[in-house]
Structure formats: C-alpha cells, structure tokens
Design a protein around this nucleic acid. Sequence first.
DNA 1: ATAACGCGGACTGATATTGTCCGTGTTATG
DNA 2: CATAACACGGACAATATCAGTCCGCGTTAT
Lengths: 182, 182
Amino acid sequence: MAHITVSVEYGLHCLLWLAESDGKPLSSRDLADLQGISHSFLAKIFPKLEKAGIVHATGGVRGGYLLARAPEDISVLQIVDAIEGRKPLFDCQEIRGRCAIFGDPPPDWATGGVCSIHLVMLRAEKAMRDALASQSLADIGQMVANKAPPHFSSDVEGWITARLGGRLGKSSTSSPGEEVCS
Amino acid sequence: MAHITVSVEYGLHCLLWLAESDGKPLSSRDLADLQGISHSFLAKIFPKLEKAGIVHATGGVRGGYLLARAPEDISVLQIVDAIEGRKPLFDCQEIRGRCAIFGDPPPDWATGGVCSIHLVMLRAEKAMRDALASQSLADIGQMVANKAPPHFSSDVEGWITARLGGRLGKSSTSSPGEEVCS
DNA sequence: ATAACGCGGACTGATATTGTCCGTGTTATG
DNA sequence: CATAACACGGACAATATCAGTCCGCGTTAT
C-alpha cells in the first residue's frame, strides 16, 4: 500500500507483455493467467489505460488489447498517471493560515502564494515525476530482454498460440519462433 | 491521504516554530493551540521526533520541546523519515517470478537482481528523497521569514510569554520584542 | 500535594486499496 | 442464428492505513 500501487505494477507488467507480443491482441484474461494475477482486478485497470490512449481495445470473441503507441513513446509516468489519476505526493492543509495570532480572515502575507512547506514537497514530487518521465516502456523492456535467455521469446510465443486455441501444429512450448524473437 | 501525510505537515510546522522561538521550550499543547490543530494528535508525533534526535524533550510542569540540533543541520528528509518511518514509494510484489511459463521454482535469471520495474521506481524514489534532503529546516524558515512583516516576531513573542503564564507586565500582543526578532 | 508536562497503548471513524461478482453490449465462430 | 469470449461498468466486501480521541503512567516545577 505504497504511493505507487500494485495496480500500476500489474499494468506495467502487462504492458511489457503487450510490447513483446506485438501483432495479436491479448485479452486481460490471457495476461492475468500468464502472470498468475487476478483477472477480475486486472479487468479494472485496462479501461484506464485505454482511456489514456496507451492501449487500444478490440471487443468480441477474439478481442483483447494492443499497444496504441510504440513502447518508446510510452513513459512510465504516463502509465502511472493513467492508472492512479495524478495523485499528489503531499496534500497541503494550509496550516499557516490558522495561526492563533491572526484574526479571521488571516492576513494576506500569511496566505498568499504557495506555502513554503508545500513548495518543498512540490519540488520533490517534480523530481520523482521527472525520473518516471525519463523512462519509457521500451527502456524497461530492454532491461528485461537482456536478462532473458534466447529461447524465452519462442517459449512465450508457444504459450500464447497454444492458449489462443491455435491448433496450427504447435501444441506445446519449445518450438522455434521467428516472429517475436529479436 | 497522500504519501507524505499530515503528520509530517504538522511536524514541520511545529519545528518551524521551535526554530523561531529559541530558548524557552514549547509544549505540544502550546504548539497545537498556536496553530489551531489537534493536541492529541500532535502528542503522537513528537515522541517520534524525539527518538530520531531532532528535538529534545523536557518533562515536568514547565517542560516541552527544543530543537536538538541547529535548523541548518535538520533536513526535511530526516523529518519525513522520523515521522513516517522510511515508507517505500513502491512495494514490489515480484510478479516476474509468477510467469505461467516458468516451473516452480522459477529460473534464476527471472528472479535474480532487482526487478526492472522496481529499479525504475527506486530511482524515482531516490530523486524525491534527494530533493527532500537538499532542503533544511533553516531554508524553509528563511522563506517564511521573508514573507512575514517585521512586527510578527514580537507578536509571537508576546503570545508565547502571555501563554506561559508570564505575568511580567505583558498581557497582550503588540508589545515590542527585542529577543527573537532578527 | 497538585497540576502541567511527556510517553505509550487502546480505541474509533473515515478513506483508499484490493479484490470479487454480476449485468450489458459487442463480435468472431460453429 | 446461437453461443462463447471479450470489454466495460457498477455494486459490493475485506483489509489496511490514516487521523484523531481518550486514558493511565511517571516526572517535575510550583
């Protein structure tokens, strides 16, 4: 229950899968089963990504989600804001105006401009957001790809085609894949 | 209910008063009444600042709190950590190890090192913490002092001496003060 | 002796998070 | 055309944290 929630974590992991498995749409159930997370909960996250223009949804029986933009053009900050809705780091209560020495209303010099404490927090929030804005989905995908062994892409491809009911000759993993493997 | 809570806000405002009113200890009730905030709640915050070595408490009937260090040597980050207890920005659930393609246990390449998503969040958290660490209590105090009119320090002095039961001739505000006014 | 103080624990209400479940509309497929 | 798989949205519940109150204990100036 931190400031950046598990909803964001789920969303980011799913978008990484969508960035990898380019072409065929993946349903929220596919993504949930693939990662061992709750489908019901994931189904509440994706409409937010869709409204933010990060993914594109296709309805119907073979429907699912695709990235609406290139992974290079999707920043982590955009994902966080899409899912959490621009949640502030600090919610200033304007304590400065309540000083017992002041009358009612408090003098203008005490309430004008931004509270000094609030200003420090806003700067910290901006530093955090700048760090998140500087990283794209493609950057994280590259980090993950550098860790995975070469056969992993084809394993994933096999799992997906098997699950899509694609009885096209591949029934299990370990078949060589030429499409997604970079 | 943001990541940085109102407890931190209350604590920071109180520490600013302690930095100003140097010499006489102020009780948590003094500070609560001076700012129009809950005394009961404030009384739960100060022991944390005391254990962190930010303020020094003196018990008994004329007791209260004093800054334990110079305002220049107290960073906003130290105050936040003292009150909130090093709360992480992001709590990684290690989704990466739950992939359906993996067996149990998942392969080492998938679980070794820091999760790539977690890494991005840790960098954002560090950027935020660096921003908070770069500002001291004295920095904020200076900002506030620049806004206040010259007679404000003596008004505060008057309020405090009146409240401390100091029946020394001053009964109200608006008397000239020479001690605290910079 | 008393009253003001710090300290700590128990308790309460409000809100956010993390889910689950169900109903509606849409669209490939048999 | 019927069905099943999909997206979407609302209602609901469990849990956690936050904000705040209240009480009892020990300490200390007056």
